[in-house]
Write a protein that binds this DNA or RNA. Sequence first.
DNA 1: CTGAAAGCGCTTACAG
DNA 2: CTGAAAGCGCTTACAG
Lengths: 342, 342
Amino acid sequence: MAVTLQQIADAAGVSRGTVDRALNHRGRIRPDVEERIQKLAREMGYQPSRAGRALAMARRKIRIGVILQYTETPFMQQVLEGVKEGKAEVEGFGGTVEIYEIQGSMPGRVIEIMETLRKREFNGIALTPSDDEMLKATIDRFMEEYQIPVVTLNADLEDTRRLCFVGQNNYQSGRTAAGLMGEITGGKGRVAVISGQMVNPGLNSRLKGFQREIQESFPEICLADTRYSYDDEWVAGKILEELLELYPDLTGIYITGHGVSGVCRALKKAGKDREMHVVANDFLKENKKWLEEGTLNFLIGQESRVQGHAPVMILFRKLFDNEDPKEEFQYTEILIKTKYNI
Amino acid sequence: MAVTLQQIADAAGVSRGTVDRALNHRGRIRPDVEERIQKLAREMGYQPSRAGRALAMARRKIRIGVILQYTETPFMQQVLEGVKEGKAEVEGFGGTVEIYEIQGSMPGRVIEIMETLRKREFNGIALTPSDDEMLKATIDRFMEEYQIPVVTLNADLEDTRRLCFVGQNNYQSGRTAAGLMGEITGGKGRVAVISGQMVNPGLNSRLKGFQREIQESFPEICLADTRYSYDDEWVAGKILEELLELYPDLTGIYITGHGVSGVCRALKKAGKDREMHVVANDFLKENKKWLEEGTLNFLIGQESRVQGHAPVMILFRKLFDNEDPKEEFQYTEILIKTKYNI
DNA sequence: CTGAAAGCGCTTACAG
DNA sequence: CTGAAAGCGCTTACAG
């Protein structure tokens, strides 16, 4: 039978309210009484009931806002699912979660929504950031001036005071890809990288991690120059054709982001889809298909649902239990999939 | 603002109790009223508050028992951590979770504990089973006669009426290992398998999956005969020495279960730890060390914590929300780790 | 078949 | 600094 506040109150010879003040550091209590009650609670193994607390706090509501950019992409749709799971969980405790979806990238719109949420007395915000000075300043203002915690998800803004970040360690993801490429090529041959936009910091980190690890651990692998598909499937395919012509001895390809289908189709057309070693990113339907067909050897994933779910729950624990996240960088797992464990 | 029972009651012109009866199919209500209220609740977007329900149900307590065998192994210790997470969660809702640890395998003891739990009015049990006729009969009796749901974890007993199973698909795990082995050996050479006990059904499934997939997808790989270490590190090392002598051309080793350290040490001693391709199972400290050193190429894991956490939460949802698990087979992810994504 | 009331474990104004 | 009381959203005997 779990210990309740009332039982501690009885044992201490005080009222429930006093025990509450002692255990939750609310002040307005004599220090020696506070200490005595805390000790007693510890001895009795008191664990507060989340249900009781949730119900009592239903008046002063917990309101969490989630702002997602690039929601037109399948990847963000997966993140969105995770957010919705968190929403259901929080609302079961009497809180509110509102979700804002932005197509493409619009940092100005993110700021607007943040201000609206503040006026509506929301008390926590999770968002996918952009590398924008105004947005950075706004995040800092929310954290410091308004005491509204902000969690970044999927991408980070390290130079802000955001509560924490939930997402992948892209550099490490790139290194993982290099390790896989080294294994399947036997550490030999020529390997090319196809990336997305040149300005995408996430993809650049993967690229850097990949290059660095290939150079250090597989010195016999010759890296061809990196090409950019600008997130266009057709361009990606075109790049592949050029690479095949330029380097008839090409043995491996690493795709940091978009363009997987373009590359795979072109490989198939050239009759090289079996022999070429290909490592790509993200568990999208299309990509899984290429993995099952055997065109891709490995697919690296990043727990998209967790990236939506965890930020909501971190904010909830902060607001409900006043519990800070243990880590500033909440890196999601780097998942490796073959056609067998998809 | 979330809709409450009271609001529905007001809108329907009935009492809270009546709405409760309608929404939770408790009977003792006129069918037309029940239907009208259900419709109304749907229209108003009613979502029951878990906090409210939890508090109200605190009287008729939810009691869940967890019985783990082989708790002396590091793997089961990880499962145990997951169980404890579930315990904390359930107890925050006013329930109770009791954990019973058994060293080694003692199906008789499992049955004893089950009976005790029944007498103490527990209403859900999760356990690691053994392939034992008495235990199977007991599980069926609990499910049918006493209406106490039982969830099997880590290993399954398919021919019982257990509510569901949480654990790895071992056959698929073996196939995954075969896929990895094929990739890193280039689909050529001679590969040996070292397993644990001949009577371990889990390891046998992995073995079968591995053999089948190698034969089908990598016909040029020659499978040496399977050896059994009887879960002994020293024996495992001895086996490796023999294999190296017998097959100087050995290129790959798949270890289905225990014995990883024995094999790796012997490989290192023979100076073959770099060139040999080794795929092993389970994220144990020792194994991770061999992965980081580069002796192991891949480690396959099975979400040990989830195997502890999920069964507790499945029982909780069954007892608290009367919600059955969606799948009879709750397979945990087959995780692939290299030294880069550990 | 339906309603009124008590109570689950907590928090929060309000008195004192 | 401390206590008594109301109330959060539900479930559950108990009356009728």
